[in-house]
Measured scan of single mutants.
Amino acid sequence: CHSECLGNCSQPDDPTKCVACRNFYLDGRCVETCPPPYYHFQDWRCVNFSFCQDLHHKCKNSRRQGCHQYVIHNNKCIPECPSGYTMNSSNLLCTPCLGPCPKVCHLLEGEKTIDSVTSAQELRGCTVINGSLIINIRGGNNLAAELEANLGLIEEISGYLKIRRSYALVSLSFFRKLRLIRGETLEIGNYSFYALDNQNLRQLWDWSKHNLTITQGKLFFHYNPKLCLSEIHKMEEVSGTKGRQERNDIALKTNGDQASCENELLKFSYIRTSFDKILLRWEPYWPPDFRDLLGFMLFYKEAPYQNVTEFDGQDACGSNSWTVVDIDPPLRSNDPKSQNHPGWLMRGLKPWTQYAIFVKTLVTFSDERRTYGAKSDIIYVQTDATNPSVPLDPISVSNSSSQIILKWKPPSDPNGNITHYLVFWERQAEDSELFELDYCLKGLKLPSRTWSPPFESEDSQKHNQSEYEDSAGECCSCPKTDSQILKELEESSFRKTFEDYLHNVVFVPRKT
């Protein structure tokens, strides 16, 4: 048989008469490798580009789960590009990614509803959504962080984005990388972005840091009482949809009607710091009717980097990364020049730590249904340095008659930039024990000054392991946590139920 035959053949030295091919099969003959313009397919066939392209389009058009959109890589027609490569849609070739590779997620039936953290986790790592997304989240724990972890990498949506009755959302900033909504599939009414009845939605994105392009379709905003109209108009300008909307697409009466839409800028007039305090004062603000001013709200939190936005980490279910302080308005003076500047002394802060701070007014709604208010920009203030805590785990070892090696770990709280350490030492008198000992005694162990690591005695271990207080009263049991108490109650309830079950099964009433 021919060298490319495997198993047997019907005619000697003829690659077209093989029972099976050793390498690849091409047009009725066995070959060692697939010549151009053919590609290896499933490690035994040679196919042309049209064959591989037909497989790709067949799966793409069917949208069946589990099928493969075949691509070409290293002269092979394979189910998908290997790690580190992405497909070129024009020629199906796998090309190296520039940075992290995109991950295209194809949605069944063309859309997916995100109504819980669990459903959001199914899209973790996706960068391109081939379909439409509907966000409908009523509640949950730590929602802002969970949504950002699972949806934060999405850069492109081919269909539309719909935010509907998501009472738990305060902001859409968890879509931190969303840059493009194509609108290839539109919501009824030709809408590519749809926001309806979101009672706590206050911000779409921080438009000073976020760009969003909507290729096709219109915007729809109705019944978002805490979303200011200025935020919607800003989205029109940034996304390129200005002029597409009709009169009733953006409701003037049901958007922002319960919001404090600040239209003035508060400026800080005085800032002073110490290692654990920050004193702030800002310019006074009074609405047209000074009785509408209820006070100020001061927001602050630790910020290692200057990239904080107002609604980071917030949701309507209680999660809030900001510390909020309510401040009463100052006494009002008739003389504008003698107006008191409101302020606040922030206490209990960490030394040498940068804080993000902003302040906003708290006002009631005027009778004319106009909203007044003022808010400052987010500023960054760093507390002063102070003395560091003591170095940890000092170790001293003498390696000769004239040297001592000293080692330690950095302090747990540096409280500033540590530039150097101060080492103090003092000579001590020799131990009298060394002169009084009889060095001729056998088995004498000389006193040693070398360091030995501390260890816990058996008594201390027994005390720590004991669940009861000892007789001397030195140790006591740790208080039980809520989960331990709940577990004990469940076990007790189970024992009672099981005992009742045994009584009912074992003891049967005697027939009379």
Rank of each mutant, 00 (worst) to 15 (best):
V308S: 13
R291F: 05
L392I: 13
S171R: 05
H222Q: 09
D206G: 06
G152V: 02
K301M: 06
V397L: 14
M235G: 14
T213H: 02
T118M: 07
L265E: 15
D312N: 03
I114A: 01
R247S: 10
D249H: 03
L345P: 13
D289H: 10
S274W: 03
R202L: 12
G217N: 01
V363G: 15
L349P: 01
P304H: 11
N320A: 11
R247G: 15
H210W: 04
L153P: 12
L252P: 13
H233T: 15
S166W: 01
D289W: 05
E187L: 07
L133T: 01
T323E: 15
T361R: 05
K226Y: 13
P304N: 01
F193Y: 05
Y191R: 05
L153N: 08
D312K: 04
G140D: 13
N198V: 01
D367V: 02
S173D: 11
R244K: 13
Q199H: 12
T353P: 00
L107S: 09
E231D: 07
T127G: 14
K407P: 00
I157T: 01
G256V: 06
Y305S: 06
Q403Y: 10
N334I: 13
K253V: 10
P394K: 05
R347E: 13
K350G: 11
C317I: 07
V397I: 15
D335W: 09
Y380R: 02
S389L: 07
C228L: 03
S171F: 09
A303P: 01
K226W: 13
M297A: 13
G313V: 11
R369V: 09
L345Q: 13
F311A: 12
L229Q: 14
L180I: 14
F311M: 13
G318L: 15
E302S: 08
N200S: 07
L204T: 13
I379N: 10
L178V: 09
Q258P: 14
D206K: 13
N248G: 06
K226S: 06
M297W: 15
P225S: 06
S173F: 06
S132H: 03
L266V: 06
R179M: 07
W207Y: 05
W282L: 06
G295W: 07
P288L: 09
P342N: 12
I379S: 03
E231V: 02
S333W: 15
S260D: 05
S321D: 04
L227P: 00
G159K: 01
W322K: 01
D315I: 06
L169N: 01
Y223W: 15
G110W: 06
L266Q: 03
G240S: 06
E156Y: 05
S396M: 09
W352D: 11
N320C: 05
V390T: 15
P336R: 11
I405L: 15
L147T: 03
A195H: 04
E368T: 14
L229V: 04
K226E: 04
T273Q: 07
M297N: 15
E184W: 09
W286L: 09
K242C: 12
T118H: 11
K162E: 04
G256F: 08
S274Q: 04
N200V: 09
L345K: 03
T127S: 11
S274V: 04
I357Q: 00
N320Y: 09
R369Y: 07
P411F: 01
G131W: 00
L180C: 10
F358T: 07
P284R: 06
K226H: 15
P284F: 15
Y372R: 03
D335N: 13
E187A: 03
S173C: 11
S398P: 11
F299D: 01
R179A: 09
V397S: 09
S333E: 14
S333Y: 04
E122K: 14
W322N: 02
L252W: 13
R247T: 11
P330V: 09
D276R: 02
N224K: 01
G131A: 04
A149Y: 13
V324S: 03
S208T: 09
K409M: 02
F296N: 01
S338L: 08
C105T: 00
Y167A: 11
H233G: 02
S171P: 00
P330S: 13
T361Y: 11
T185L: 08
L349F: 01
N387S: 07
T361H: 03
K350T: 10
F174K: 00
T361F: 15
R182I: 12
S230H: 02
W207V: 11
N255F: 09
P330L: 13
T254E: 08
S132P: 04
D393G: 04
L265Q: 07
L229M: 02
N263S: 04
D335Y: 03
S333N: 13
Q354R: 05
L201M: 01
D393Q: 15
N263R: 10
E146S: 03
L107F: 04
T353N: 03
R182Q: 07
L293V: 04
I327C: 14
V397M: 12
H222A: 06
L349E: 00
Q306V: 11
K226M: 10
P388T: 01
F296L: 06
A149F: 07
L178M: 14
C317L: 06
E302H: 15
R370A: 05
S376N: 01
T386W: 06
V390G: 08
S119G: 02
K277M: 05
K112V: 08
T113E: 10
S116G: 04
T383W: 00
F296Q: 14
T353F: 09
G183L: 01
R247P: 05
N141S: 13
Y223P: 00
Y285S: 04
K177N: 03
E262A: 14
E283S: 06
E156Q: 14
W322G: 02
M235L: 14
C228A: 06
S319F: 07
S376K: 01
K177A: 09
S192A: 03
S158A: 12
N263H: 03
L151K: 00
N198C: 01
K226Q: 11
Q382M: 09
A356S: 04
Q121N: 09
L331A: 06
L172S: 03
F296C: 07
Q121Y: 01
K301I: 14
D393N: 05
T127K: 02
V390M: 10
P304F: 13
N387Y: 03
H341Y: 09
L172R: 00
L227W: 00
I271R: 01
Y380G: 03
T361L: 12
T113Y: 13
V308G: 01
Q403T: 03
G125L: 14
T371R: 09
G243W: 03
F268V: 06
N211H: 15
V104H: 11
M297V: 11
C126S: 01
Y223A: 08
Y355R: 00
K209H: 12
T364S: 12
N248W: 11
S239A: 11
L266R: 00
F174W: 08
L161C: 13
E156T: 05
E246F: 10
N198W: 00
G110C: 04
P351M: 07
R370Y: 11
Y380E: 01
